[in-house]
């Protein structure tokens, strides 16, 4: 159990995809204009990541080595399409906001990276936990980035007014994404360094 717990917490902290591995920057920068959008993107990725990790771990012995990347991509893109259809059916507002970034989860390097680096070498249970850890790490990071940007840029949190009169718009715009990500990375490094 200790080993499994470590797999899970590694995804959250030591291998945090956003602040440590610095993977999946494209959706991170683009969809974190508000806390809710960031969280939605994170949850969609989390789902795809867990499912694809489990399936790829299941198939790791039958997938021939030479065609493993196309096989992974087929599995991943199927789950992404499933997520896309489900979101379109049940949470259309979120679907409209995230737009093109949903189909782009297919090429999110976190997912292919975990399939290649972890799921293809480990068992189902461990792979699921790894997906859950990394996915939650990604979701939390995106939510935090989104919260900071929404608060500084709009004076809101999850759409609720924290103070009146908005904020510095630049945090909602693209440069703000880099500022916030950079500073959060510093904070994250500082905090985790103490623990180690």
């Amino acid at each position: 159990m200790g080993k499994n717990l470590k797999i899970f917490t590694d995804g959250l902290l030591k291998n945090n995809p956003t602040f440590v591995l610095v993977l999946g920057m494209c959706p991170t920068l683009a969809t974190t204009t508000s806390a809710f959008n960031g969280m939605g993107m994170g949850v969609a990725t989390l789902f795809v990541l867990v499912m694809s990790n489990v399936v790829i771990s299941l198939l790791k012995n039958v997938i021939p080595d030479k065609v493993r990347i196309p096989a992974y991509i087929v599995v991943i893109s199927s789950f992404v399409t499933v997520v896309q259809l489900l979101m379109q059916a049940y949470v259309q507002d979120l679907y409209n906001t995230l737009g093109v970034f949903i189909p782009l989860i297919v090429v999110n390097c976190i997912i292919l990276g975990r399939a290649e680096a972890f799921a293809s070498k480990n068992g189902i249970w461990a792979s699921a936990l790894d997906g859950l850890g990394i996915g939650l790490g990604f979701t939390l990071s995106l939510t935090v980035v989104g919260m900071v940007r929404e608060l500084l840029g709009n004076g809101q949190l999850f759409g609720l007014d924290i103070w009146q009169g908005g904020g510095a718009l630049i945090f909602i715009l693209s440069p703000g994404a880099f500022f916030v990500l950079g500073y959060l990375m510093i904070v994250f490094r500082k905090l985790t360094a103490k623990k180690n």
């Binding site: 198939l59 039958v62 997938i63 021939p64 030479k66 065609v67 196309p70 096989a71 087929v74 599995v75 893109s77 199927s78 499933v82």
Partner: peptide, 15 residues
């Protein structure tokens, strides 16, 4: 190899 890829693609499309 080709067969395996075909099977995976087929199952995924069905899903």
């Amino acid at each position: 190899m080709v067969l395996m890829l075909f099977v995976i693609a087929f199952v995924c499309s069905a899903a």
